[in-house]
Design a protein around this nucleic acid. Structure first.
Lengths: 240, 240
DNA sequence: TAGTGGTCTAGACCACGAC
DNA sequence: TCGTGGTCTAGACCACTAC
């Protein structure tokens, strides 16, 4: 048995969860890839299938793994569904969401601001990619969004890449899997620039969403600031 | 066996979950009260303890029940912790929350507006309680909040009641348990009234949170509109 | 048909809390 | 000490997917 059973040690299934997470972080299996079956794991680790099931169930709940009945267990990935249902919270009046269209305004490399470096855990003035884009819902420009990415993680990123869903792009082209995102929301006044892009008057109230995307390893890899007009849309959340 | 095992029927643990939910809704056990032990349930329902455990685990995850090791399983309640950690999302710059102080400005009964009646599933112009209050964080007025309650559910509600945490009050005084809340967030401009109460200039951007609180039975029981200045605070959310 | 995850059982043993 | 929930096992059988 590879696990500690000493008095006071964590339960087996917790140790197995940590083992799985470590192996996923090491890249032993990538998003969308299948992991060994429960029975194989049970044999490999010398525990019962029930214990493996319990460990995997926890990771499924944390959206680290996905089970498919009859097929196997897979590392979670940012497909369009996840982008839309887990990570996009802007709804229209009927409380329906639609994947927005995006138009890139700016795509440059520059030095990180002090705030960006701080939030992305980068050295002062580290190089970053900076992207600005407009997102439209129902053919109306609703969101102006600025995205900052550490350039050492995204070597070779090109303007053309930005057509895809970003988190899917990070995964497939740069082997960076976003696991969770932390958002803080504020109300601000539209700048002249914001207002021009969103067809509003300067000073109009905008919902500002600052999002930091993190990997399973808790490394911040994207800072995204979205400013949204909420005349016809809103940010939706459910509390339990 | 009281359960269906016909081909195509839901799993036992799902049927047991539904049974438990039904019995909680009927009021067989109230928030904070203990429910029978797993072994008792297993005997009563003629299934194994493992199946009961699986059913209860699901309800614990949905925050309908709470387990206490060595003590028993209890119906979830809105204590201060839950109010603060699950249902209050306003943080300060250090990303710390503090339970706000409240000062009541208005406490009246009146007819519901069309929007209120619609959202609370009430007949047109049904009578409601309407409360307006200011909430302060760190001694600063931050939030102006208006609350609408169907008066038939809150018979005898008095101004004096409002000193408590509201969801706890609903539970203990009116036997109404809030299970979840749906929020929609927008940016708006402060009205003259808002601005005066929050020491702001008219037109300042405010974060407006419209919250509908629902019971386990999916009945809406409170409509709450909070307008927050986000100069020194923000709304915090994590996505997975 | 073979392999996967999904359900359910019966039972042993552990850890916590109240008495 | 007793009753509670918590962990872990071994095994039966079901349901879905692919071949």
């Amino acid at each position: 048995m590879v696990f500690s059973t000493a008095n006071g040690s964590a339960p087996l299934y917790t140790q197995i969860q940590n083992l799985l997470i470590t192996r996923i972080i090491k890249g032993e299996w990538s998003p969308t890839e299948i992991i060994p079956s429960e029975i194989q794991f049970a044999r490999e680790l010398g525990v019962s299938q029930g214990t493996i099931r319990k460990a995997i169930t926890g990771l499924v709940e944390r959206k680290i793994l996905i089970r498919r009945h009859g097929k196997g267990t897979f590392v979670a990935s940012h497909d369009n569904d996840r982008a839309l249902f887990q990570f996009f919270r802007i709804h229209n009046k009927k409380n329906i969401k639609a994947l927005p269209e995006s138009k890139t305004l700016t795509f440059i490399q520059r030095s990180a601001s002090a705030a960006e470096a701080d939030k992305l855990h980068l050295p002062k003035k580290a190089r970053v990619f900076f992207i600005e884009r407009i997102r439209s819902l129902d053919d109306q420009p609703i969101i102006i969004e600025s995205i900052t990415l550490p350039d050492h993680l995204f070597k070779g990123l090109k303007d053309i890449h930005l057509l895809n869903t970003l988190y899917n792009l990070y995964e497939t082209e740069f082997s960076i899997a976003v696991h969770r995102a932390e958002e803080s929301l504020r109300a601000i006044s539209a700048s002249k620039h914001d207002a021009a892009q969103l067809n509003l008057t300067e000073g109009a109230p905008l919902l500002e969403i600052e999002r930091l995307a993190l990997t399973l390893d808790n490394e911040p890899i994207e800072l995204r600031i979205s400013r949204c007009t909420t005349e016809k849309h809103h940010y939706w959340n459910t509390l339990y």
